[in-house]
Design a protein around this nucleic acid. Structure first.
Lengths: 255, 255
DNA sequence: CTCAATTTGTTCGTATGTATG
DNA sequence: ACATACATACGAACAAATTGA
């Protein structure tokens, strides 16, 4: 009967969690402001077309997160905003990217010297003949993990760098190599889901969304020397650009 | 006891759906190839540390999606790949963006002539003095909705465009206006969750992830004349760039 | 052809979580 | 707070189909 019913059905997440996520979003976007009294249970029941207990479960969830504060007889109030760490500014310029990751705190969690080759799609260059080394690392910001990097590095590059790759970001090292020319840096950004490994390292739930960034460096012989699959925690991730930065102000066409 | 147990606990999504999403990913990434026989129920039980019935529920889910095909006595086989509509190539260049949306099929679903002003963050310009008009539209590709655009358009611009804005994308119209200068086009990309309205229009579940793109056009007087919050269906979304496109090949520093 | 091993399919009982009114 | 209904998850046992020795 209700329009919402069909929406609820499309998600298999428990109803009270769906309701909670809508409420959380309202607080986050400022639709409900801090200190405000939110609608009464009765109003919320009607709006979401669910039972009272379900609303209460949702409120309880947000209370545990410190976002809501219910007071018997008075009402329910907004007591805080969800925390975001949108400090990560993904680069859309190669030099900015290289310099920004140079000082990253990272922890190598896995190295496979004889790894299988990465899957390359159309336009991402050719596979290196001498195979790849696989490196996995986690990047931290103030103690919290915010990204997992799965890197296939061409063996030739790995050997050239020696032990440098063990404890620092690979990209700046490669850029500094005198006899390596990078002709393309293909970046693809999508939304993915956390695998068991990623979920474990990022401390998130299995199958939760992540911002996935694939970065493939291709040398002057069209060989993919660096193939990284990076999974970012969704709350840390933001990509900011001024689309007119390079071309300058746009005066009306006035034709 | 198990390492996975704690990961399961972090997500409130039913266990069999979590397991299914891991399996779906394995098929998608080619870890499990089409035609292959996947591990037996017994092996999967152990790997995921769940009951047999739970594995079967996950398999049933993927069977309905056409990804798996279980045969009694033989095993379970991969019968297809998840479909992606990653055809959407979000622009990182203003001209490309304008030209790419010019021919979009869209449906205006909501217009508010006297709307509240949008929330602007630091650096996104000043609010227009004459207020805003709010427009909501849905964009379709071969009948399927792939994005919802919530647009606050400065009233001055809206009045200038007349009825043009009713049935076509606003951006190209604005660019063509002779007396309008766009000095900045701030784009911010994040991962968000679907509100009831967005979920309804995109035909996804409440609280499911979306790719959120905010585009703010600022004129030469630092006024935000166009403030769009765009929610993309996560499966349609991809942002591809060559980070070296503008600066050209990078020869080793060789200092 | 039969037998045994393998593998998926089904069912039962129990416990807990979700949602309604 | 209560009674009710249904979904989720477990473990274990048993049934049915396939395969190869």
């Amino acid at each position: 009967m209700n329009k919402l019913t069909s929406i609820y059905d499309r998600s298999r997440v428990p109803l009270y969690i769906q309701v909670a996520s809508v409420m959380r979003q309202r607080i986050d976007t400022g639709h409900w402001l801090e200190g405000d009294k939110i609608s009464t249970l009765e109003e919320l029941e009607k709006e979401f077309a669910v039972a009272r207990v379900t609303i209460r479960q949702a409120i309880e969830l947000l209370r545990e997160e410190g976002l809501l504060n219910a007071q018997q007889g008075r009402g329910t109030f907004v007591s805080g905003k969800p925390k975001h760490n949108r400090w990560l500014n993904l680069a859309n310029d190669f030099d900015v990217m290289v310099s920004s990751i140079k000082d990253n705190v990272l922890k190598r969690v896995h190295i496979e010297e004889t790894a299988s080759s990465p899957e390359l799609s159309e336009g991402e260059g050719q596979l290196a003949e001498d195979g790849y080394v696989f490196l996995r690392s986690v990047q931290y910001n103030s103690g919290e993990p915010f990204s997992v990097v799965n890197l296939h590095l061409a063996r030739s590059i790995f050997d050239k760098g020696g032990k440098q790759f063990m404890h620092a970001a690979a990209l700046p090292k490669i850029v500094e190599m005198a006899d390596v020319t990078i002709s393309h840096a293909h970046q693809t950004l999508t939304i993915g889901v956390a695998s068991p490994e990623t979920a474990d390292l990022l401390k998130i739930g299995l199958g939760e969304p992540t911002a996935d960034c694939r970065l493939v460096l291709v040398d002057d012989k069209d060989v993919a020397i660096y193939v990284a699959d990076i999974h970012y925690h969704k709350n840390c991730f933001a990509l900011r650009t001024d689309l007119l930065e390079r071309s300058g102000p746009r005066r009306g066409a006035g034709k």
